[in-house]
Amino acid sequence: MDVDLELEDSDNEETITAQSVLAKLEEAWMNEKFSPEILPHRTEIVDCMLEQIHQMEENLNKLKKSDFRVVIHRMELDRIRYIITSYLRSRLEKIELYTSHILEMESKRPVEERYLSPAEYKFAQEHQSHLENHFETVVLRHMPYNIRTLDKATMSVAPNLFSQVFLRANKTVNGVIVETGVEGAEEEVELDGNSQHIIQYKAIAELVKSGSVQLI
């Protein structure tokens, strides 16, 4: 029943434990929940955990039903499954809300640096074309000739990057610029290690993606 993984991280050949992958999954889940925009996908973590769950279930099937560990392990699996589905659901929600905008941003990024996983990208494209067909058949067909086109630029819904979020700084970060919105004025803020703040998302977006801060 040893669930210690020996995953080779292609970057630095450390062995990563299932425990640390789970911790990363939880961080990704929280970040995705509270971030207004869609974040880079962590499919490798999700796939790894799904594999873990699968292995654990196979092991559990070999145990006797009366073994007290069965209940405990199943509870843990349910918990992990919940985090995974909640994470994926947050992402899907954002893809559905901001389809046009996300696809536009993705087209500007090289394929390896895409924020959407291949499956999500396909979903986004299909969703976009469904929406366009729907508008076409229900509305646009019946409109006068010169306003029959969809102007994607004005119609794309973008997330509000100035939304306020709560965060915890994982390490000290200096020089965070916050736009106060009054005549374009700016404020500089320091985030000490382990401190908690409420701040506009735009100022710390890069820090979230790099792991320097955690949204809570």
Binding site: T154, S156, P159, N160
Partner: peptide, 9 residues
């Protein structure tokens, strides 16, 4: 996801 009110199309 609960977004604060932001006007859009």
């Amino acid at each position: 996801l609960l977004r604060s009110y932001t006007p859009h199309y």
